[in-house]
Measured scan of single mutants.
Amino acid sequence: NQESVVAAVLIPINTALTVGMMTTRVVSPTGIPAEDIPRLISMQVNQVVPMGTTLMPDMVKGYAP
């Protein structure tokens, strides 16, 4: 099972992602793959992401799977 990126904290809208904001977990449905965390650093979320929420591609500005 592939791990997906999950919010480790509440991430406010338009916040640039940092390593500490993200964790990984096997979830269903799957979100952004864990191995993409290095690509996500400094990208901004386009909505509020509650802690424990799986990051989906459409939540991150400029992210393309």
Rank of each mutant, 00 (worst) to 15 (best):
Q2C: 02
S4Y: 04
M51L: 05
I11D: 00
G20S: 12
D36N: 12
S4G: 04
T24S: 12
I41H: 04
T54P: 05
E35G: 15
L17R: 00
M56I: 07
I37G: 03
T54E: 02
R25W: 04
T23V: 09
E3M: 14
P12S: 08
P65G: 14
M22Q: 01
V5P: 01
V60C: 02
R25F: 04
M21L: 06
N14K: 09
P29Y: 07
Q47D: 08
E35P: 06
V6Y: 03
A16T: 14
T23W: 12
V9C: 03
E3P: 11
M56D: 05
P50E: 09
L17S: 00
D58C: 04
V45D: 00
V26E: 06
V48S: 09
S42Y: 05
T30D: 08
A7N: 01
T24R: 14
Q44L: 12
N14F: 07
V26D: 08
T53R: 09
P50L: 09
Q47R: 12
T30C: 03
E3L: 15
I32V: 08
V48M: 12
V26M: 15
T23L: 15
L10A: 15
P29I: 07
T54Q: 04
S42K: 13
R25T: 06
P12H: 13
A8Q: 10
D58M: 14
N1M: 10
V5W: 02
I13E: 10
N1L: 15
A8V: 09
I32S: 01
P38S: 11
T53M: 08
N14W: 12
M22T: 04
L40E: 00
L10R: 08
Q44H: 10
E3R: 13
V48K: 15
L40W: 02
V19D: 08
V27M: 14
V19G: 13
A16P: 12
I11V: 07
P50M: 15
A34P: 10
G52K: 06
L40G: 00
A16Y: 13
Q47E: 15
S42M: 06
T53K: 07
V5S: 02
M51S: 07
T54R: 04
T30H: 08
P65F: 04
V19C: 04
T54D: 01
P38E: 09
G20F: 08
P57R: 11
V60H: 01
Q44T: 10
P29F: 05
Q47W: 04
P38F: 11
P12R: 09
P38T: 14
